[in-house]
Design a protein around this nucleic acid. Structure first.
Length: 504
RNA sequence: GCCGGUAUCGUCUAGGGGUCAGGACACGUGGUUCUCAGCCACGGGACCGGGGUUCGAAUCCCCGUACCGGUACCA
């Protein structure tokens, strides 16, 4: 059993394509089959080496791997269509010599008019067959004379049904009378899609073709080609499309749509992959969150749904939260580093173990309450960007702080004599003393403390946030931006609070 | 227009001739005696419409409708 994924390197890998790749991979790995990556770069105008590289990176990032491919080698290469041009040409010649293909000299303008005409007559637009019966000798002369020509496949005469048992849809069939003689080789000698895939899939001995629903109507043409060559066609499975929330094809205006964008926003690869597998398929047993390997053992292409799926960013966020929670803190810091650096919180230097430990704790904690890694800085502002002045500029915060002046004053005074609140217990004890001195309790106690110590009305649990502040304050080097201690914060906050406020 | 495909809560789905039509995300209410997130509990929410077959249809068949895809010298 051999499967393949064949992206064309004309841009970023889309989540829809990524899902198709994933289904192929799941099926291959679940069956112990060979998985091939082929690059379909015959559209020279739009294909780039760069896009090929990023497609490979994206697929690998998602956790997919392949046994043969453009970057992996293998016995069925080359795996880049641009390097197989001679193969396509040879096969085109073969079909021509058998009379199953012919040169076509129609201009694009002529074809355009034919199409228009057919539409007016409410007929399916298909090639009218103008060049079908040009004698072979004449055609050869014209080609040698330099006249531009394509090579078309001669669709067998007579109305016949061409169908197949689709792995996800069941029986699908077309009749040949709606299929016109299609182009195999363009006038520049480059193969057209339908021709190239068939040659490649056949020569690469692909046994199962899992691809997007948008290829359904190509399938009968390809089947005809297999037949013309006398090859046994593979099994086909056409998976439905992925749509945006408005049921339109997923596009930029829906926000992030490419794998690269999700990576940049701090989604975990295992989360994206897991979520993608859930569109149109269900692992069953009320279990949705499963590692790729487990999904592979459960995956059956026959169980994939036939209807299009709407991409739901909310659910992706939920899946991502799950994986964020179970990820190792060290890995999270590594992944969050770019975001922290953007904030200017990280210096360029090496890696001081104390700083690293501090960051691991901070990021690890913040990642518990965030949808994606790019939101981590937002949860950590209180550490690096504390400013009593800026916080108290907010009227709501100033009002609440003013009401709770006694609490803040007591807090500052207790903190002035206490050591650093390096753990939850010390912090609780200190809060207890403030409560005894002021009589404030519950919300009236903790919320003002939160304001004074973090500068923000909401955020991490104080039990965790306060020790983090103290841990950061203990670090004295250039690797991490300086964090002010709880004592300094309370003092500064109190001072700022007592300053007469400029009238607004 | 023509060809092909699809149709269960807002979304992803399970199921499938007789079920209280199940779960997840999202949503609402309450709880977790600092907040947001989380977590827990509870709650509202669906078989596209019409015919037929049948004792019985969401399930099978037909028609309609809506939506998706294709209709290229793009893949």
């Amino acid at each position: 059993m051999r499967l393949r994924f064949a992206p064309s390197p004309t841009g970023q890998i889309h989540v829809g394509n990524a899902r198709t790749a994933l289904f192929n991979w799941l099926m291959a790995r679940g069956a112990g089959a060979t998985f091939v990556l082929r690059i379909e770069d015959t559209d020279f105008a739009r294909s780039t080496k760069e896009a090929e590289g990023s497609a490979i990176d994206d697929l690998r990032w998602l956790g997919l791997n392949w046994d043969e491919g453009a970057d992996a080698g293998g016995a069925h290469g080359p795996y880049r269509q641009s390097e197989r041009l001679h193969i396509y040409r040879a096969h085109a010649v073969e079909l021509m010599s058998k009379g199953q293909a012919y040169h076509c000299f129609c201009s694009e303008e002529q074809l355009e008019m034919d199409r228009y005409q057919a539409l007016r007559n409410m007929q399916p637009p298909k090639y009218v067959g103008r060049c079908r019966n040009i004698p072979r000798e004449e055609a050869r002369r014209r080609v040698e004379g330099g006249e531009p020509a394509t090579v078309r496949f001669r669709v067998p005469d007579g109305d016949r049904e061409v169908g197949w048992e689709d792995l996800v849809r069941g029986r699908v069939a077309f009749t040949t009378d709606v299929i016109g003689d299609f182009v195999m080789l363009r006038s520049d000698g480059v193969p057209a899609y339908n021709f190239a895939v068939v040659i490649d899939d056949a020569l690469m001995e692909i046994s199962h073709v899992i691809r997007g629903e948008d290829h359904i109507s190509n399938t009968p043409r390809q089947l005809l080609l297999y037949e013309a060559f006398g090859w046994k066609p593979p099994r086909f499975g056409h998976v439905s499309m992925v749509l945006g929330p408005d049921h339109a094809k997923l596009s930029k205006r829906h926000g992030a749509t490419s794998v690269g964008e999700f990576r940049e926003r701090g989604y975990l690869p295992e989360a994206l992959a897991n979520y993608l597998a859930l569109i149109g398929w269900s692992p069953g047993e009320h279990q949705e969150l499963l590692p790729l390997g487990e999904l592979a053992t459960r995956f059956r292409i026959e169980d994939v749904g036939k209807s299009p799926g709407v991409f739901d960013p909310e659910k992706l966020a939920w899946v991502n939260r799950h994986y964020l929670k179970i990820a190792a803190p060290e890995r999270l810091v590594e992944l969050a580093l770019p975001f922290l650096r953007q904030q200017g919180w990280i210096g360029r230097e090496g890696r001081d173990p104390k700083a690293l430990d501090f960051l691991a704790k901070a990021v690890g904690t913040a990642a518990q309450s965030v949808d994606r890694l790019d939101q981590v800085p937002g949860r950590l502002h209180f550490l690096f960007d504390y400013s009593a002045e800026a916080s108290l500029a907010d009227p709501a915060i100033r009002a609440e702080a003013t009401d709770a002046r006694a609490v803040i004053a007591a807090l500052a005074s207790e903190l002035a004599t206490a050591g650093p609140l390096t753990d939850k217990e010390t912090f609780r004890a200190l809060a207890g003393r403030v409560r005894e001195r002021t009589g404030a309790r519950g919300k009236g106690l903790f919320h003002p403390i939160r304001l004074a110590l973090t500068g923000e009305p909401e955020g991490l649990e104080l039990d965790i946030a306060v020790p983090l502040i103290e841990q950061g304050a203990a670090i004295r080097n250039a690797e991490v931006r300086a964090v002010s201690s709880a004592a300094d914060r309370a003092a500064a906050f109190l001072l700022e609070l007592e300053k007469p406020v400029a009238n607004a």
